[in-house]
């Protein structure tokens, strides 16, 4: 089992990364959420394999939580919310598909260069996971900045959270279970609140485009 997991680890890592990268040129809401779910599940499996490999007991709840909350509950919640609010399936962005992908790949390369400057490179659990976390977070940031509708911004935020979760894996930080539960529930609450707000935005303005959210200047 340990051997299989060790072999599959790179696969999980790659799926995790690619799901985030492929999310950038995706302009349909359902596909976006599916990619997110995919990425979360890959992350959960990655954490699980780390747990098994290093025999660190504290990672099991984390893996379970990621799988459950981020892989299942949140995508379901969001899909539900989007369906109920009647938002358009088509998402808006400042850049079209190809340029978005290009920018994301450029971001990946920049991250690779950046990694060398970090003082953690030596002490991290695994240099690859460190790279992954930063790359995925970067992709999330790009999604928040380049996309023009509220749902993509939410999903961008979720990708950032995924990246941070991977970062916690890389930096071998132990958080007591109770507090971890608290963190997960907070993330869940945050997402549900964001979903509620975007539902209200859709109701009030008739569109999920953030161009309608530009009235408060000065």
């Amino acid at each position: 089992m340990i051997a299989t997991l060790a072999v599959l680890e790179p696969l999980f890592a790659v799926v995790f990364l690619f799901a985030s990268v492929l999310a950038m040129p995706t302009f349909r809401v359902k596909s976006l959420l599916r990619l997110y779910a995919c990425s979360s599940i890959a992350l959960a499996l990655l954490i699980f394999s780390f747990a098994v490999r290093d025999a660190s007991g504290h990672l099991y709840p984390l893996a379970l939580g990621t799988l459950f909350v981020k892989g299942l509950v949140i995508p379901a919640l969001l899909t539900n919310a989007i369906r109920r609010s009647g938002a358009s399936e088509r998402l808006q962005s400042s850049l079209r598909a190809a340029p978005s992908l290009f920018v994301t790949v450029a971001a990946l390369l920049v991250t690779a260069l950046l990694i060398q400057h970090l003082p953690f490179a030596a002490s991290a659990a695994s240099a690859h996971v460190l790279y992954l976390s930063i790359a995925v977070a970067f992709a999330g940031i790009l999604m928040m900045v380049l996309r023009r509708d509220v749902f993509s911004q939410m999903v961008g935020f979720l990708f950032i959270e995924n990246g941070i979760a991977a970062f916690s894996l890389a930096t071998i930080v132990v958080i007591p279970v109770a507090i971890e539960v608290g963190i997960f529930s907070i993330v869940l609450l945050a997402v549900s609140m964001m979903a509620l707000l975007s539902h209200k935005v859709q109701e009030l303005y008739g569109t999920s485009d953030t161009a309608s959210l530009r009235e408060l200047t000065d």
Partner: peptide
């Protein structure tokens, strides 16, 4: 200076990063 408060969320997020 007022143009900083442009109303665009993306710009605000970009400011943070």
């Amino acid at each position: 200076v007022r143009r900083v408060q442009s109303g665009s969320v993306q710009l605000y997020v970009a400011f943070i990063f």
